[in-house]
Design a protein around this nucleic acid. Sequence first.
DNA 1: TTGAAAGCGTTACCAA
DNA 2: TTGGTAACGCTTTCAA
Lengths: 373, 373
Amino acid sequence: MTETPPRRDHGVPAAVPRVRLVDVAREAGLSKTTVSAALNGTGRLSPAVRERAREVARRLGYRPNPTARLLRAGHARLIGYAVGEYPTGPGSYMDSPYFTQLTSAIATTALRHGYALVLLPTGSSPDEWADLPLDAAIVADPLADDPLVEGFIAARIPLSSDRSVEGRSGTHWVDVDAEAAVREVLDHLRAQGARRIAVVAPDTPTSFYTAALDAYRRWCAEQGATPLVTLSTRPGNGPAVEAVERSLTTPDRPDALFMLTEANPPLVLDAARRLGLSVPADLLLVCASEDTSAAHADPPVTTLSLQPVSVAEKGVELLVAALESGSLEPTGALVRTRLEIRTSSERGGEPAGGAALRRRGRQEAEYTSAPPT
Amino acid sequence: MTETPPRRDHGVPAAVPRVRLVDVAREAGLSKTTVSAALNGTGRLSPAVRERAREVARRLGYRPNPTARLLRAGHARLIGYAVGEYPTGPGSYMDSPYFTQLTSAIATTALRHGYALVLLPTGSSPDEWADLPLDAAIVADPLADDPLVEGFIAARIPLSSDRSVEGRSGTHWVDVDAEAAVREVLDHLRAQGARRIAVVAPDTPTSFYTAALDAYRRWCAEQGATPLVTLSTRPGNGPAVEAVERSLTTPDRPDALFMLTEANPPLVLDAARRLGLSVPADLLLVCASEDTSAAHADPPVTTLSLQPVSVAEKGVELLVAALESGSLEPTGALVRTRLEIRTSSERGGEPAGGAALRRRGRQEAEYTSAPPT
DNA sequence: TTGAAAGCGTTACCAA
DNA sequence: TTGGTAACGCTTTCAA
């Protein structure tokens, strides 16, 4: 006989009492075990029984309880995700194309490996996610002594983050090769004839920007050049544009600008234009940005991509590998950036307007104008 | 005596056998019940015992198993989130400021109500999330007969989406008032002197764009004006800019442009400039966009905000209210858009460059240039 | 004040 | 081939 436990509802008033495995079993005149095997395609069951169990389950609208399965399975296939940067400021990290692409790619990659991503609040305390059945976590751009990072490590939850966690048990890191990236940009600008290369960078302790500024200063020292650094103190396009204006109106007016601060490239061009500077004739421009508008700007803007997709993939892969193998061995990887050279940083490049005029030549036939009513 | 069940490891090789409640109980010489009460602050325990239990738990590094608590509690406080638009195209929905702000706001609002968001893949089949213990789901901009929407409804998982789910049991909808939005924009442009208002819209079946185009055509009919519609067929800034160029080179050249397609506003200005059109003197411009660069463009661009934050808040609130009350009663809400009028749509507005020249006057002292090395 | 035992809903082992 | 029973780890009722 199958047991018939009396149901004692507790908690939220359940509108419809959920159909459980026992309910299906009772209705089908089978045992829980048999029905479970039938639905999961496991065990050795006669086709007739299997089909009957399935039919009854379908008829009753049975849905296995995910939480119960999770408890049995011992893992939830859930990865927590948080971004450490800009803990306070207005406008979340989602305003940055770098972070949106990173977030999107992490979610996609995790999903491909069978894990779903749980969005955690920036700057939250470890207690808030203690009730979530997370198998692992990813913290992008952690703050110094990030409470989230420390919390996950203390909870022995495998963690993927940046180089600041290097070597700690159960952690994995991915970082961008800032040194190489900066050198590539500066060497490129110098080869194009730039002699006074200014940099606009955000005033954050984020590892990439710190490392990038260090690399810039080293490069300047090697070249015997004067570092020209302007800091943008708050996130957002407004402050970034102001920083550009300040940078370009310096006594020793630069002949090239390397925007490390993430800003909308057309806006940077606007700023230069307002100051009477023609890009690339008077000013070479390179923007560290993932903004797709760079390619369509006038002139198209050279960008340094921090390759958020690669960072995401590597971070997830290291984490998943450790998860599957059960290893606590820390691992890490360095990702190469990508310099996409466009007109804005090529001495002798076409001035603004050129590309557009050409484009107007091959007007497409897709135009649809509704007829007069 | 406390039971001492032999641990039989199964599944992934656990590097460190997790500390369970019984382990703490045994070590402290107490029962599971007592330790549980001590840690949760429930029951009536002597301060001494409570402290001892806590001390032992701390010493052993005990972490309650979230899944087990969830099974008891009957809910996971997890909300699934997916976006239906652009199921195939390259570049995810995360490329759009509207969706990033929506996503960010939904996550924040949900968290504030005690729910965490689980990112689901766009266009996934219902099987893929069947193992996730979701209490509810949100599908932004669902496709027609979206499999995700149908799956959630079939699984009796409370759902928040757009108006297409209106009236179905356990569903909630939030939509933007497209009709009112379009009328406000067109009336504004007409009041500024526009007579031939062109529209560029994406070629998607998304409810907002469909409704907006309908409203535009109705308005034109009322005014006895000719609808001038150009469709941008693919997502992204490139196709949007091309559509703008097509729209502005029409035989009956428009004197105002209403960009429904989400594009980077400075890029739209660029396109107009390349065609020899000065904004706002020759062309009034309004962009439906959440892009913050609109305010900093030259001239600043008037935007129609679809208020993703309001949409997010309302959607989550309706869902949470239903979750807490256990009601299956469908609910819904209409959100008002917001027209942010700037120079680009004001006849007689300041030409490009003006704002910047003023700004250069009050140069700030924040500039930091490193001294020569 | 403390603790034994009964669930929560599922899957896996092993006996019938 | 099928089914009883014992976990998974926790909270809670109820009896001592």
